[in-house]
Write a protein that binds this DNA or RNA. Structure first.
Length: 506
RNA sequence: CGGGGCGUAGCGCAGUCUGGUAGCGCGCACGGUUCGGGACCGUGAGGUCGGAGGUUCGAAUCCUCUCGCCCCGACCA
């Protein structure tokens, strides 16, 4: 445990807890010390700080562009869900009932017996309002008014919102009582179209996870017991964290006609017959922040993929006198300008309240992909010290301060290289921690060591439950891309056509 | 809800067992020396000890009640 802490929640002690010694403490410390978020005064709810929110905004931007590119539009629906709406889809209601925050009154008043405020008993709502745990109910209620004809379909809508799920136990970013997310809700004239949409959005999530977060994922379908409440099928992307646990990083649900029927939404098809539309919903949340941290970071702090780093390049001047700083600032002005023109997010940290060594450590902690160190020696030599966060290596490079185009191109390439390297590293980690397991004894041993286990399963809920009971491992998904391969269930010995992915999960 | 821990300065803590009127580190302010991997010295500002009640000449410390947070488990994105 670090023994001293300073203002702004930043630890001054050098060492983070080590991943190998206490993974969850390491995680919590990174969140705090990289200045991403903090626990708030409200139970289970976090404050996302500017640096953390900047990463989330980059995620949002990339995802939103992908949603738009696939034909979706953004809209916004109410925070409150009348209880009667939530009740309509039975499985959905049952699935979320245990974790709902409920609004029962709309007014407070001065406490007649003392100080402060009390809930005004005369201000009880006719019907309780549920703070949305997800928005299928309010949205499908609205869609009832939007859909009459096949010409109104498809509806391809997404909303960026906050939702509340009253979890018993919370962990910052990974499971908070309130979290930010996006939820897509679509309605289609045909089953095929809705199924295609479900797959398309799963693909978008996988592309985002791998291309932007540099985090390889397994695409698959959930077993019945892990399915979203109210869905016909739930698809997901699953990623491995550095402690060998799995993290569900996004879900895409095929909802069939369940919500259409529950909310009595019908349309007239081309043959003038009434039909229920087919639905999908899909979402990713601020949990991705947790995934990003746990997928790449090391014992020195956060490691961010360049595509999502709020600061891609930081320039740290190394100087003694104020005059030296001025000299350096002037000399690197063209370089700074060209980096910005090249679309690179760069910070020149000329603050004089910390020394360069402090800054090196600080930007490492914050996961800035590339650091440029420039001192008087460099000015003489025309060089810059280029340090990369992913490998923690540094090398002098020729900067040619007067006309630094070539150098800037090099930095651009370096950022791409880092993005790729982080991805490859994570992929290698996953490969090294994925195990084909064929016997129950082996399974029990391996699950204790962590990692992804590919094993045969007889397809029954009983076996799935028994395995979970005995090992805490769940079926993360039935992978879509893996080949069929006959075998015998690792637990029951019964026949199985395909291996499924088991792991302990967040 | 079960188990454990914790609420004392902006942050991290000590002091509580054995009551005597609050201390350390970091941060902050000012001055100086430093400056190529988390610098150092000096001076200074800052709290009444989560809340309520009680015992006592006297309570951070003892007693009762209460609120809140964190960690582990069951529930879950």
């Amino acid at each position: 445990m670090p023994d001293c802490r300073c203002g702004n929640g930043i630890y001054m002690s050098k060492a983070l807890p080590k991943r190998s010694e206490n993974y969850s403490e390491w995680y919590n410390e990174i969140v705090k010390r990289a200045d991403l978020a903090e626990n708030s005064a409200v139970r289970g709810c976090m404050v996302i700080k500017p640096y953390g929110f900047a990463i989330w905004e980059k995620m949002q931007r990339a995802l939103d562009d992908m949603f738009k590119a696939t034909g979706h539009q953004n809209a916004y629906f109410p925070l409150f869900v009348p209880k009667s709406f939530l009740e309509k889809e039975e499985e959905h209601a049952e699935g979320f009932a245990k974790e709902c925050a409920v609004v029962t009154h709309y007014r407070l008043k001065k406490d007649p017996n003392g100080k402060g405020l009390i809930v005004d008993p005369n201000a009880k709502l006719e019907e309780e309002l549920i703070i949305r745990p997800t928005s299928e109910a309010v949205i499908w209620n609205a869609y009832k008014g939007w859909i009459q004809s096949w010409r109104d379909l498809p509806i391809l809508v997404n909303q960026w919102a906050n939702v509340v799920r009253w979890e018993m136990r919370t962990r910052i970013f990974l499971r908070t009582a309130e979290f930010l997310w996006q939820e897509g809700h679509t309605a289609h004239a045909t089953l095929e179209e809705a199924v295609n949409e479900t797959h398309q959005m799963l693909g978008v999530y996988a592309e985002f996870a791998e291309g932007w977060m540099a985090m390889p994922v397994i695409q698959g379908v959930k077993s019945a017991s892990e399915r979203f409440a109210g869905a016909v099928d739930t698809f997901c992307i699953e990623a491995i964290m550095q402690d060998g646990k799995a993290l569900q990083a996004g879900t895409s649900h095929f909802l069939g006609q369940n919500f259409a029927k529950s909310f009595d939404v019908q349309f007239v098809n081309k043959e003038n017959q009434l039909e229920y539309p087919w639905a999908t919903s899909w979402g990713v949340s601020t949990r991705l922040m947790g995934a990003l941290i746990m997928a790449h970071s090391d014992d020195n702090g956060l490691v961010l993929p360049p595509k999502l780093a709020p600061i891609q390049v930081v320039i740290v001047p190394i100087y003694r006198t104020p005059e030296d700083l001025v000299t350096i600032s002037e000399k690197i002005a063209p370089l700074l300008g060209e980096l910005r023109t090249a679309g690179i997010s760069v910070k020149f940290d000329d603050s004089d309240n910390q020394r360069s060594g402090w800054k090196f450590a600080e930007y490492e902690l914050r996961g800035v992909p590339v650091r440029l160190g420039i001192g008087m020696r460099d000015l003489e030599n025309g060089t810059v010290e280029v340090a990369r966060r992913d490998t923690l290596t540094k090398e002098p490079r020729n900067a040619n301060f007067g006309s630094p185009s070539e150098f800037v191109n090099g930095i651009k390439l370096l950022l791409d290289e880092i993005q790729e390297n982080i991805y490859q590293r994570a992929l290698k980690f996953r490969e090294e921690n994925t195990f084909l397991v064929d016997t129950w004894d082996e399974f029990k041993v391996q699950i204790e060591k962590g990692g992804f286990i590919m094993a045969h399963w007889d397809g029954t809920a009983e076996t799935e439950a028994a395995i979970k009971e005995e090992t805490k491992a769940t079926i993360r998904c039935i992978p879509l891309l893996s080949a069929e391969q006959a075998g015998n269930c690792v637990y029951s010995g019964k026949e199985s056509a395909k291996r499924v992915l088991f792991a302990r999960a967040y």
